[in-house]
């Protein structure tokens, strides 16, 4: 006869998985907290919790949970994959690669381990290795939607739009309504200049999951492309997001100090008008960066409100 607490844990894990499938991260986290309240010595819920905390950008807590998962079950490929994902978020790529490779050694038949390693190679810019890992993942499971979508993303990054569209289509054949595959198709349309089709793909995903981040990003890209004034802020914001917090601080501080030095130099050297122009230009940039996000969010919000009115 099964231990009642085991049955309780299994029931809770099923509920957590169900919330996960609905992309309801907060609810899934609450259920996992209950699971770990019943039995804190289970590795898999700790690792799953780490993935969910990463989704909420709670890096410190995610690392703690992934470390607990790994400590409880160091022979699990899932534990290593969880820790690898945390290392990627911390931009500790070498350590992440070691964990993903260990995960592959522990379970060479699981394509998800290879997809994780391929994502890392992709991030590092080693597209050849990334493609090789994804091809091996597809050998293990030719209809694995995650591998196909990852390959589609890779092709998109390489500018091979036709191949990207083909892999995204294959992913959708394997798993109809696969959100990430639809988003990739949207990006292909966007690159081809078909804004309407790109927008429709974003709406398609958002109509079933309004909080889907990648679909929101696609929608934002579409809006930024159709409105150059807002698009400029969006591109700058995306670029700052890519370079990380520390560099963002340096860039902004550097820009501020550069304009102050330039303005001061002009003022001290008998060029008051130039000094004023520099100061006013900086003021304009500040106002734009203050107003830009608000305008941008309003435009995207309006679009999302229209999603609710549409019948799919």
């Amino acid at each position: 006869m099964s231990d009642p607490s085991d049955l309780q844990v299994q029931a809770l894990m099923r509920r957590a998985s169900s919330y996960l499938a609905q992309s309801n991260t907060p609810a899934a986290i609450e259920i996992l907290k209950q699971v770990l309240g019943v039995n804190p010595n289970l590795a898999a819920p700790h690792t799953l919790l780490a993935f969910l905390l990463l989704d909420q950008n709670r890096l410190h807590a995610a690392r703690h949970e992934a470390a607990l998962g790994l400590e409880l079950d160091p022979e699990s490929d899932y534990s290593h994959r969880g820790m690898g994902a945390v290392c990627v978020a911390q931009r500790k790529f070498k350590l992440a690669r070691e964990h993903f490779q260990q995960a592959i050694t522990l379970d060479p038949e699981d394509p998800d381990n290879r997809v994780a390693l391929a994502d890392l190679y992709n991030l590092e810019g080693d597209l050849k290795q990334a493609k090789s890992e994804l091809q091996q993942a597809l050998v293990l499971d030719p209809e694995n939607a995650e591998s196909l979508v990852a390959l589609a993303r890779l092709c998109l990054r390489q500018g091979a739009l036709g191949e990207a569209a083909r892999f995204a289509k294959e992913a959708l054949e394997a798993e109809p309504e696969h959100a990430a595959a639809l988003v990739v198709q949207g990006h292909v349309h966007l690159r081809q200049g078909n804004l309407e089709a790109a927008r429709d793909h974003a709406i398609w995903v958002l109509s079933t999951d309004p909080s889907r981040r990648e679909a929101l990003l696609l929608m934002a890209h579409v809006k930024a492309r159709s409105n150059p004034f807002i698009g400029l802020w969006w591109r700058f914001s995306v670029w700052l997001g890519e370079i990380g917090n520390q560099r963002t601080i340096l860039v902004l501080l550097g820009a501020y100090l550069a304009q102050r030095v330039a303005s001061l130099y002009a003022h001290l050297n008998g060029m008051p008008m130039t000094s004023d122009i520099i100061s006013y230009l900086w003021l304009a940039v500040c106002i734009y960066s203050w107003v830009g996000p608000g305008l941008f969010h309003n435009v995207v919000k309006k679009e999302l409100e229209s999603v609710k009115l549409r019948d799919f």
Partner: peptide, 10 residues
């Protein structure tokens, strides 16, 4: 179920 696990950054 009374016990709930506490996440480190809560």
């Amino acid at each position: 179920m009374d016990e709930t696990y506490k996440i480190i950054d809560e």
